[in-house]
Simulated assay, not measured.
Amino acid sequence: MNSPENIEFLNFLVKRFKIERDKFDRSGVYAYTQRLFAYHSNKIEGSILTEEQTAFLFDNGTLPRSDDCYRAKDVEEMNGHFLMFNRMLDTLDEPLSQELIKQFHYELKSGVFEDRANGYAIGDYKQRPNMIGMYETVRPENVTQEMNLLMDWYNSQEVDISVLAEFHARYESIHPFQDGNGRTGRLILFRECMKNCVVPVVIEDANRNKYLEALKEYREEKSLDKLITLFEKEQQFYFEKCKYFM
Rank of each mutant, 00 (worst) to 15 (best):
M88E: 11
V199D: 04
Y70T: 11
E94K: 15
S97T: 04
A206Y: 08
I188Y: 01
P200T: 02
E240I: 12
L89A: 04
K241V: 00
I44D: 12
Y211I: 03
G46F: 00
I101G: 15
F9V: 00
F37S: 07
P176Q: 15
Q98P: 14
F113S: 02
F12K: 10
G28F: 06
V14A: 06
F113Q: 04
E172C: 03
N60F: 09
K222T: 00
A31G: 09
I174E: 15
F56K: 04
N118K: 13
K18F: 02
Y135S: 10
Y70D: 04
H168V: 07
I203V: 05
P129T: 13
K109G: 01
E20K: 04
G182Q: 11
Y244D: 06
I44C: 11
K222D: 05
T184L: 12
D124Y: 11
K43N: 14
D67I: 00
C197P: 09
F9I: 00
A214R: 10
I101E: 13
Y218K: 15
Y135D: 10
E107V: 00
F9A: 04
G185Y: 15
D152Y: 03
P64K: 01
L89I: 02
N130V: 04
S162L: 06
T144E: 15
Y106A: 09
K195I: 01
L215T: 05
L57A: 05
D59E: 11
R170V: 02
S27G: 05
L149E: 11
L89E: 06
Y125C: 06
R87S: 07
Y39A: 14
D90K: 03
K222C: 01
I44G: 13
E77M: 08
N11K: 04
R71E: 08
W153N: 10
R116V: 01
G119W: 02
E234R: 07
M84H: 12
S47G: 11
E99A: 03
K43Q: 14
G28H: 09
E52D: 13
Y211H: 11
T62I: 02
D225S: 09
D59I: 01
A169P: 13
S173L: 14
E45W: 09
N11M: 01
Q103T: 12
L49V: 05
L149H: 08
Q145W: 07
M147P: 08
A169I: 02
N2Q: 13
N207T: 01
F177E: 08
A121E: 10
H105I: 00
Q98E: 15
Q127R: 15
K241Q: 07
M78N: 09
Y154D: 13
Y135Q: 09
G133V: 03
H40G: 14
L108M: 02
C193M: 05
I19Q: 05
L150M: 05
L57N: 06
I188A: 13
P200W: 06
D90Y: 03
N42Y: 05
L57Y: 10
K233I: 13
F167I: 03
E99C: 01
Q235T: 00
D160Q: 07
Y244H: 08
R191K: 12
P129R: 15
Q127N: 14
Q98W: 07
Y218M: 11
E114C: 03
G46E: 00
V75R: 12
K222L: 05
V159G: 12
N209A: 10
F237P: 11
Y70H: 10
F167V: 01
N207G: 07
V201G: 04
G28W: 05
